[in-house]
């Protein structure tokens, strides 16, 4: 094949890069690295540093060292933090146990070409093309007191069903909205992975007399490992960084506290304080922790 034919040429080149090559490489590696440092790492490190200060975010001269005061404030004085944490955990559990498996199941069914699979594919994929903010706007129109659903139920605003204002159910209302989009997203990712599977694998397991479920569990799932990793990571990140839908529906009011909104509420506007930076750091630690743990375990399995 062509790759084996070009290999010796490549390896010779590696030893002696021409001036032009070096320049190109330097540009291609250097510029993104610089941008990455400038736009990601430096702000991230500054956020961590600022989370240990008092500052209104305007004049550098006003920055005062606070030690861990912002963190003790969050952990010991702020009930909203625990409400938010609880909501983020519900979000994560819901996504992990319901939305993501539903997406995988749909992908599998569509890949098996069930009747009308083309229709299902477009129908479930459709919400994914909308940004989360737009999703929030659409569902807000549907569910608010003077919205579509209350309208067709013939309820006026004085006796409307309170989808967003009833604190016992509103997190689940939001979960349905978020899943509406998440399911399609996972479905698409998984479907792309399934399409790439060699069909002979399925045939072989069918010949060996494996049931559909056994085939999925023992053949498809292991082959799909790279996609599985992506899906787990996406599920964790999407649940913890959640912000857009809530912000569109509730603004910065604490109607449904989640960590993303607490970051924004404490860092934006006139009430800016570095408590917001501390929330951001906590959110970062929470999201990065499980992801690192999961990836390490996966790679260890790969090695052994």
């Amino acid at each position: 094949m062509s790759s084996s034919a070009t290999r010796p040429v490549r390896s010779r080149r590696r030893r002696a890069f021409s001036r032009g090559d070096r320049l190109t490489l330097g540009l291609f590696v250097g510029v993104p690295t610089l941008l990455h440092l400038l736009l990601v790492w430096i702000p991230a490190i500054l956020t961590i540093v600022l989370s240990f200060t008092y500052w209104t975010g305007i004049r550098f001269g006003d920055i005062k060292w606070a030690g861990v005061a912002n963190y003790t404030n969050i952990f010991t004085k702020t009930p909203a933090f625990y409400d938010a944490l609880r909501n983020n955990v519900i979000w994560l559990v819901w996504f992990a146990l319901l939305a993501t498996p539903a997406g995988v199941l749909l992908a599998y069914q569509i890949d098996r070409h069930i009747r009308g699979h083309r229709f299902y594919q477009s129908a479930y994929y459709f919400p994914v093309v909308l940004s989360l903010a737009v999703t929030g706007i659409i569902w807000n129109f549907m569910l608010r007191s003077d919205g579509f659903i209350n309208g067709i139920l013939g309820r006026d605003i004085d006796n409307a069903i309170s989808f967003f204002g009833n604190y016992d159910i509103n997190i689940y209302v939001i979960m349905v909205i978020a899943s509406w989009r998440h399911v399609g997203y996972i479905m698409l990712l998984y479907l792309a992975g399934l399409k790439a599977i060699d069909p002979t694998l399925r045939e072989a397991s069918a010949i060996d007399g494996a049931t559909e479920w056994e085939t999925f569990r023992k053949v498809i799932l292991p082959v799909m490992r790279p996609v599985n990793v992506i899906i787990v990571v996406i599920t964790i990140i999407e649940s913890l960084r959640a912000f857009d839908i809530i912000y569109v529906i509730y603004g910065t009011s604490a109607g449904l506290p989640i960590l993303g909104v607490l970051v924004f509420q404490n860092i934006a506007g006139e009430g800016a304080s570095m408590k917001g930076a501390a929330y951001a750091v906590l959110l970062f630690v929470l999201s990065i922790g499980p992801i690192i743990a999961y990836l390490r375990q996966q790679f260890r399995e790969d090695v052994s």
Partner: peptide, 22 residues
Amino acid sequence: MNENVLDLEWDGAMQLLLQRKA
């Protein structure tokens, strides 16, 4: 009060008055 206090923004309460429901 209306029961959906936490579901209405200020203009929702105004609508109640405007529509003679409050």
